[in-house]
Simulated scan of single mutants.
Amino acid sequence: MKLTIISFVLLFTFSFSFSQSYSNAESVEYDPLHDRWLVSNGNRIISDDGQGSLSFFGTGTTSYGLEVMGNTAFGIQGSNIVGFDLTTELQVTIATVSGASFLNGMTNDGVNTIYVTDFSQGKIHKIDFSNFASPVVTQIVANTQNTPNGILFDGDNNRLIYTSWNGNAQIKQVDLSNNQVSTIITTSLGSIDGIDDDAQGDFYVSSWSPDRITKYDSNFQNPETVTTPSLSNPADIGINQATGIMGIPMGSSVIFVDLGVLSVEEFNTNEFNFTVSPNPIDTTSKINVFNLNSESIKIELLSVSGKVVQTISNQIDLGNSSISLKNMNQASGIYFIRASNKLGVTTKKVIIK
């Protein structure tokens, strides 16, 4: 199957030299309660505001998979799954997976259940955290038929989807009605690490051979390469479905990409575009919008983490329009201006002085 190259826009790449820095960034999850990204980093969780400010999350040690479920962040400590309150950052629960060898990928059902892969033993375990004082651990797959890595709960189809680490790696599924394993697709990729989905039901996997993010449709057909610069061993990716922002951990760095911004060639089919000048923004700056279709355009200002901080215009109709930015009441820093309608979306980075 031919790979279609789609160009996505890199939001920002961060590397750090101070004490809270990435040295072994493995898994990234968005925390919607506090508008931040959490990253498992060797033996600590790091909180990343998406704008280059890092801090340690609590004092607990974690490695590999990381999951946010409700008001709790779950991480792996050896053969344990440990939960930390997102507000107090204190440990609130722990579950031991007896006999575990290498717990790696995690996912959750959004209610009270965590699923975790054992990479070395080829197993999948289910942990019911309905009662934090007494979580229940159940092995649901004794033989995954490969070395399971990233895993994703697909509630719409009552299944788990998991990736594998070998060459021509397979993506498999577990039917949660009977815990039976079957193959979805055999890929041309090697060493697939993470997997996540977006709000449209498309799936994304990260691989080390080649270093790539690959997008599949809801049926795991029509693979497309998400083009991002400087990927090196991309690990357990995470997607903020509300904004379409993907976090990609890569050991010594984490990068964020906007999955909603297509290439110029694809964008031109939507028949609208805009420019911002001058940029950095000052009292003379304007947005010039070119709308060649009948669909009205909405324009918003976003923080680097993808949060809408200001609606600039709710309706730009057919034709050319100019919007003054002299009354932007935002702190100095890096932002993104997003224009969208039913036909498409595009985002441009701006700096507010």
Results as ranks from 00 to 15, higher is better:
154 D>S: 03
170 Q>C: 09
227 T>Q: 13
79 S>P: 10
84 F>W: 04
149 N>A: 11
251 G>T: 08
304 V>F: 15
153 F>E: 08
133 A>W: 13
47 S>V: 06
94 I>T: 12
344 G>R: 03
181 V>H: 08
273 N>R: 13
310 Q>E: 15
233 N>M: 09
70 G>P: 08
81 I>N: 00
274 F>S: 05
257 V>I: 11
231 L>N: 00
81 I>M: 01
196 D>N: 07
266 E>F: 15
265 E>C: 11
289 V>K: 04
34 H>F: 15
319 G>Y: 14
188 S>M: 09
287 I>T: 06
114 I>P: 10
131 N>Y: 05
131 N>R: 05
199 A>W: 11
56 F>E: 08
19 S>P: 11
330 Q>C: 10
7 S>P: 12
251 G>D: 04
54 L>F: 08
62 T>K: 14
27 S>V: 04
97 V>P: 07
347 T>R: 12
310 Q>T: 10
98 S>H: 07
145 Q>V: 05
190 G>P: 00
318 L>Y: 15
280 P>C: 02
272 F>E: 05
132 F>A: 03
353 K>P: 07
350 V>Q: 02
295 E>H: 10
325 L>H: 06
322 S>C: 03
132 F>N: 09
153 F>L: 02
171 I>V: 04
9 V>W: 13
24 N>R: 12
305 S>L: 12
251 G>V: 01
324 S>V: 02
53 S>V: 14
75 G>W: 03
150 G>F: 02
297 I>E: 08
283 T>N: 13
323 I>Q: 07
283 T>G: 14
321 S>Q: 11
123 K>M: 07
268 N>K: 15
136 V>C: 06
290 F>L: 13
349 K>V: 01
12 F>N: 15
277 S>T: 15
98 S>N: 10
279 N>F: 01
211 D>S: 00
339 A>Y: 08
10 L>P: 12
53 S>L: 12
69 M>T: 03
256 F>W: 11
181 V>S: 07
136 V>W: 05
240 N>Q: 05
162 Y>G: 03
179 N>A: 04
258 D>P: 11
151 I>F: 08
201 G>Q: 03
340 S>K: 13
59 T>D: 08
162 Y>C: 02
193 D>A: 04
59 T>Q: 11
166 N>T: 14
172 K>P: 07
275 T>C: 05
135 P>Q: 02
121 Q>Y: 15
226 V>A: 00
251 G>N: 11
64 Y>F: 15
158 N>L: 06
25 A>P: 06
276 V>S: 07
32 P>A: 05
348 K>D: 00
347 T>P: 07
193 D>S: 09
280 P>L: 00
135 P>F: 04
343 L>Y: 12
66 L>V: 04
345 V>Y: 13
169 A>P: 12
323 I>R: 14
233 N>R: 14
7 S>W: 14
275 T>N: 13
291 N>H: 08
100 A>G: 04
353 K>G: 06
149 N>H: 14
242 A>D: 09
318 L>P: 11
282 D>I: 01
308 V>D: 02
231 L>F: 03
47 S>C: 08
19 S>Y: 10
315 Q>G: 09
186 T>I: 01
290 F>Y: 15
205 V>G: 01
20 Q>D: 14
214 T>E: 00
179 N>I: 01
209 S>N: 12
113 T>S: 05
